[in-house]
């Protein structure tokens, strides 16, 4: 269980409270008005933003003060998910070993990951030589080889356009299928939340609420969510 106990996150004048638990293997959407603190919540879980108060546990172990790379999670940001001067293969290799120096076996792992995101044979291209969708696929292939138990998505596909975004989210769902990976994704689109996730955390009015069934929440939204959904 990913457990946030009595957490307070401060960002300038803005304060977010979170006291909730997420079951391992769950797929959870984070939804709420813009500026409510969705990214702030993910950044704190990932270790990029320290807590003002409270603890974070994963499977009973406290991870509150672990540096980002030592936490059992991988994260895709809104942008900057690839190093522009490294090839697709080199970018993925950093997920296997952070120094990028791989054994032949591990090289094979990289090729397998490339094939799973349908980029076989494109490993030597640099990000600038790939389309936006292909760049997202490379980032996903790296997440795959990182083999982390939790995957955080901070709207990495927002710039892709509706059809491609849907395709990428389906690919995410397909890739983590059966691996037991816990997925937390920020979403602006209730349809995405319904299709990919079974639970949703509502972030509104300085509070990150406990996850509830996605369909139930969206069918009977509380006032704060109703205003946002329109």
């Amino acid at each position: 269980m990913l457990k946030l106990s009595d957490c307070v996150i401060e960002n300038g004048n803005f304060t977010l409270h979170a006291d909730l638990g997420i079951e391992p293997g769950a797929s959870v959407a984070i939804i709420g008005p813009s500026g409510a603190g969705k990214s702030t919540l993910l950044e704190s879980i990932a270790g990029f933003r320290p807590l003002a108060r409270g603890q974070i546990h994963w499977q009973g172990t406290e991870i509150t003060d672990l540096p980002p790379g030592k936490r059992p999670l991988a994260m895709l940001f809104q942008d900057g998910n690839l190093f522009p001067h490294l090839t697709a293969e080199q970018n993925i290799a950093l997920g296997v070993r952070p120094n990028g120096q791989l054994s032949p076996d591990e090289q094979g792992e990289v090729q397998t990951a490339l094939a799973r995101v349908s980029l076989a044979g494109m490993g030597t291209r640099k990000p600038a030589e790939l389309s936006g969708g292909q760049q997202s696929r490379v980032a996903l292939a790296r997440v795959l080889v990182q083999r982390r138990q939790v995957l955080l998505l901070d709207e990495p596909f927002a710039a892709l356009g509706p059809a491609l975004k849907t395709e990428m989210l389906d690919l995410v769902a397909e890739l983590i299928e059966g691996t037991g990976t816990t997925l937390l994704m920020i979403s602006h689109d209730p349809q995405d939340a319904r299709r990919i996730t079974d639970q949703t955390i509502l972030v509104a009015e300085g509070q990150a609420h406990s996850p509830v069934e996605t369909a139930e929440l969206l069918d009977n939204p509380p006032p704060s969510l109703r205003n946002y959904l329109g």
Binding site: A46, G47, F48, P67, P68, G69, K70, A74, M75, F77, G80, N81, L82, F83, P84, H85, L86, L94, G95, P98, N99, G100, Q146
Partner: peptide, 25 residues
Amino acid sequence: SRHGRLALSLDMANMTFFVRILLPR
């Protein structure tokens, strides 16, 4: 500022970041 977060999330060592990311960029 551009690549620090990604390097941190990959648990990249200081030296690796310096040699493989900072210097080439």
